[in-house]
Design a protein around this nucleic acid. Structure first.
Length: 874
RNA sequence: GCGGGUGUAGCCGAACUGGUAUAGGCGCCAGAUUUAGGAUCUGGUGGGUUUUGCCCAUUGGGGGUUCGAGUCCCUCCACCCGCACCA
């Protein structure tokens, strides 16, 4: 028998489980290391090869850190509430609880088959009542701080999903999941005041060891800008309109005022003559989908209200308009129109004939808005000031005259925290006489009622409202009739704090003990996809800071170091056909990609609309030249596309198949060998054969697989030849450095070189073989354990000390010295590493080849860095 | 449109602070072994050439700094990812 992962992998997985090899507990004698994966949503499709990429990386680090003496916390769990299970319930009537537990079972089996060193005694399921209880408790804690409130606001309503979505879940006017259209309707919603933490969420990013692009994404999402709030008196009414602007220095150029159509004062300031047009415009704006709004960015629409306000700087009356280019939810929902110095205002003013007054010189406002810095003109007391000076002067003037003050505004909005869905955490809240009251702590968790129809109602009512016996309850305090909250929390709720539950997952009394939290937190390494840059990672940071303020956690930030693994992509094969309606039967014409023109709605060939089609790798045919072609029509060349794996593209690789064919160690190794962890790369079915061969070679290096009992090969009991000593020392040094830097691809290539070369000039010394197995263990743990055992060790190598190398052994005695003439390589020498400059130059000059390039002349200049190189310049 | 990232062989990729570009793997070619195929092992694999050798080119394109550039600077191009009227 040769290397057989199908036998040894289940054996060691069993061993680790039975011996609880990776169970972690508080141990103050060892430094702790908390390494965490973004836990998965257990979808019905099971794991695909993208999941294990990050999991393998964290597992390597976890195993490596254990061997370096760290007490490692490495847990796994399930983010199990969410839309897909509920959608499935809508379609099939299967209770999401059933779907969820089945999916979890599949995920767990698959993850365990890959040999990850999770402490399974800490497994978490966010839908478990024992977990929901504490999610609800945290909501109540947030509520007690006044950070949760209900508001009637226009929300993103998705008719197809029957729910509202957070702004972050709406992409290009369509739902992130499913791509259904989204419209805006006002509904009463729970909001979390994340904006109260904007300043800290921004500032504390500085100290995090996160990828800079992710930090920038969060900074931009938070969107802090400094400017001023300016108060405009409204003519004829006893109200003021506040605006936020970053260009308060242009106040003298504000020639009109624009309110968002949803602004609360619109009705008040509208004159009787204008009332009907304003009403029409408001209605249109409300109906407009996000998609259309964004498609029409260039054309500005709006109507005058007939009302006026007073520019506090000029004292002049300026007209008040409404226009949907002003966003209701940013700043104050009102903007002062300064056409000369803002391109949007310029377009608006030009279109509606509003006056354009230059107040900063430096541009040509007859042609376009000038947005740069310049010198204030037409600006009364500020004339002659530079733009920064003018801003300061305006802020001071506003404050002195009671017309406003310097102010800061954020792009980030409060977090819309309720969903009109079933499969989520119920709010631990009852409503008594229209007042929201928290459910007493000892009644937590508030569990979902059972349901047999999960379909969305389509009329803005929620699934929970259909269970009157659950909705209707009594206030335990007063005995008065009350109703439960009809909404559920969004999927983010459970993932906002799971990393805290992992430190003390079975605690019945508290969400986590202070002792466990102080010992384990923060997470030292967090690995997951970049798609969570602004959602999960911002929400979790927000909750963490709230919990910090309440004294429940001891760190400001939850995740000290973050790595984004790249996507594992797949090869897919594409062509087009003209069956755009997906009709059955009939004549269908196929086209290859090069004839297809992209259009606004899709694609076309010679004016005929066409639709892309994908073929799975297993379905394609090859023509005589080996090109991918359509199986039924070899004239249709298929376009090879590298893209995200998805069912619709037919390019999904199932890890079960890979494990069955090559084993978990090969899968792990290949995922890491594909390239840098952060970089996306396409899965190659051939590529995995290479790492499989490497493991086979490693096996045969130590095992005589031709002999009957597959005995251990003869190993040398001495220290090895100098070359072997150096090779092993170099490998220890290189692999250690690479793992520390998460460069697993180069670590693997160094191990490959070791296997290739160690037996070149003699028998493998036992000592070296053991060192190799320890280096291999984090990456390919099953084979390492098996060979370790066969070398005569009775217990797991999971806690063996990590190999050290001798610096002296790494140092070579000679080096290759390069001689260049005019920067071009002309000769090389083996020289002693301690050669001095003089000797190096003399050696270089002694070369006949070099002399021939010098053609007799003396070099004008000599640059020597012994023992690396000598460069002769003529 | 704005912001960020990436670009090295047929493919995935390596190259520490500027110092022999292309390590390692895949694929391909040849040889060995084998009844054959597969598997395995050995060697080769940028181009040219008069082939134990010699010469030349090359890191998306162009330009620059430097004795020397994949690496630094400018500029252009392609692809990917965010954001998108944020006043």
């Amino acid at each position: 028998m040769t290397y057989n992962p199908r036998v040894i992998e289940p054996k060691w997985q069993q061993y680790w489980l039975e011996h609880e090899t990776f169970k972690a507990g508080i141990d103050r004698d060892r430094p702790k290391y908390y390494v965490l994966d973004m836990f998965p949503y257990p979808s019905g499709d099971g794991l695909h090869v993208g999941h294990p990429e990050g999991y393998t990386a964290t597992d390597i680090v976890a195993r490596y850190k254990r061997m370096r003496g760290f007490n490692v916390l490495h847990p796994m769990g399930w983010d199990a509430f969410g839309l897909p299970a509920e959608q499935y319930a809508v379609e099939t009537g299967t209770h999401p609880r059933e779907t969820t537990s089945r999916n979890i079972e599949t995920f767990k089996r698959q993850i365990q088959s890959l040999g990850f060193s999770y402490d399974w005694s800490r497994e978490i399921d966010t839908t478990d009542p024992g977990y929901v209880k504490w999610t609800q408790w945290i909501f109540q804690e947030i509520h007690k701080l006044g950070l949760a409130y209900e508001a009637e606001i226009p929300v993103n309503w998705c008719p197809a999903l029957g729910t509202v979505l957070a702004n972050e879940e709406v992409i290009d006017g369509k739902s992130e999941r499913g791509g259904y259209p989204v419209i805006r309707v006002p509904l009463k919603q729970w909001m979390l005041k994340i904006t109260a933490y904007a300043e800290r969420l921004l500032a504390d990013l500085d100290d995090l060891d996160w990828p800079e692009p992710i930090k920038k994404l969060q900074r931009d999402w938070i969107g802090r800008s400094e400017g001023a709030e300016i108060i405009f008196d409204v003519v004829g009414h006893d109200v003021t309109i506040d605006v936020f602007t970053t260009r308060h220095d242009t106040l003298f150029g504000a020639t009109y005022m624009v309110l968002a159509p949803e602004h609360p004062f619109v009705d008040l300031v509208t004159s009787d003559e204008q009332r009907s047009v304003v009403e029409v415009y408001k209605a249109e704006a409300a109906r407009k989908s996000e998609l259309r709004r964004q498609a029409e960015l260039d054309e500005k629409t709006g109507v005058p209200t007939g009302g006026f306000c007073i520019n506090p700087a000029t004292g002049e009356n300026i007209p008040i308009w409404i226009a949907d280019y002003v966003l209701a939810h940013y700043g104050t929902g009102a903007v002062m129109g300064v056409p000369a110095h803002d391109p949007r205002d310029y377009a608006f003013a030009t279109q509606f004939g509003l006056p354009i007054v230059e107040v900063v010189s430096g541009g040509d406002v007859a042609n376009e808005a000038f947005t740069g810095d310049g010198t204030a003109v037409n600006s009364g007391f500020m004339n002659g000031l530079s733009t920064p000076e003018a801003k300061k002067a305006t802020a001071d003037w506003l404050e002195q005259h009671g017309h406003g003050k310097a102010a800061v505004s954020f792009k980030m909005r409060d977090w819309l925290f309720s969903r009109q869905r079933y499969w989520g955490e119920p709010f631990p809240v009852i409503h008594v006489d229209g007042e929201a009251k928290l459910v007493p702590f000892d009644e937590l968790p508030v569990l979902l009622p059972d349901l047999d129809n999960f379909a969305p109602s389509g009329d803005f009512t929620t699934p929970l409202e259909r269970v009157p016996e659950w909705i209707n309850t009594t206030d335990p305090e007063t005995g008065r009739p009350a109703v439960r909250d009809k909404n559920t929390m969004p999927q983010w709720a459970g993932s906002c704090w799971y990393y805290l539950r992992f430190v003390d997952p079975n605690n019945q009394q508290v969400a986590w003990s202070q002792e466990a939290e102080r010992y384990w937190m923060p997470v030292d390494l967090y690995v997951g996809g970049a798609e969570h840059a602004t959602l999960h990672l911002l929400y979790a940071r927000f909750w963490h800071k709230v919990l910090f303020d309440l004294g429940h956690v001891s760190t400001h930030e939850p995740f000290q170091r973050l790595i984004n693994q790249g996507m594992v992509q797949g090869f897919s094969y594409r062509y087009y056909d003209d069956n755009v309606d997906d009709a059955d039967g009939g004549e269908v014409r196929r086209f290859q990609a090069k004839h297809v023109q992209p259009t606004l709605e899709g694609a076309e060939v010679d004016g005929i609309p066409v639709k892309p089609r994908w073929l799975a790798m297993s379905e394609i045919a090859r023509d005589s030249e080996g090109r991918a072609v359509h199986p039924d029509d070899h004239d249709i060349l298929l376009e090879e596309v590298i893209e995200k794996m998805s069912k619709s593209r037919g390019n999904v690789i199932n890890p079960d198949d890979v494990v069955a064919a090559y084993g978990a160690d090969s899968l792990r190794l290949y995922e890491m060998f594909m390239g840098p962890l952060e970089k996306a790369a396409p899965w190659s079915t051939e590529g995995i054969a290479g790492v499989y061969r490497f493991l086979q070679k490693a096996w045969r290096l130590l095992i005589d697989d031709r002999a009957e009992q597959e005995p251990l090969k003869e190993l040398a009991e001495d220290a090895g030849t100098p070359a072997q000593v150096r090779l092993t020392a170099l490998t220890v040094k290189g692999v250690t450095e690479d793992i520390e830097a998460l460069r697993f691809n180069t670590a693997i290539s160094k191990l490959m070189i070791w296997v290739r070369d160690i037996a070149k000039e003699g028998t493998v010394p036992r000592e070296h073989a053991e060192t190799f197995l320890l280096l291999l263990a984090p990456l390919a743990p099953h084979i390492a354990e098996e060979l370790w055992a066969r070398l005569g060790h009775a217990t797991t190598l999971a806690y063996e000390p990590w190999p050290q190398h001798d610096e002296a052994a790494v140092r070579a005695e000679t080096a290759t010295m390069v001689v260049q003439v005019n920067g071009k390589l002309r000769d090389t020498f083996e020289v002693a590493v301690d050669i001095n400059e003089e000797e190096a130059i003399a050696t270089a000059m002694s070369s006949e080849k070099v002399q021939s390039f010098l053609s007799g002349a003396d070099p004008k200049r000599v640059i020597a860095k012994p023992p690396k190189f000598v460069n002769l310049v003529v």
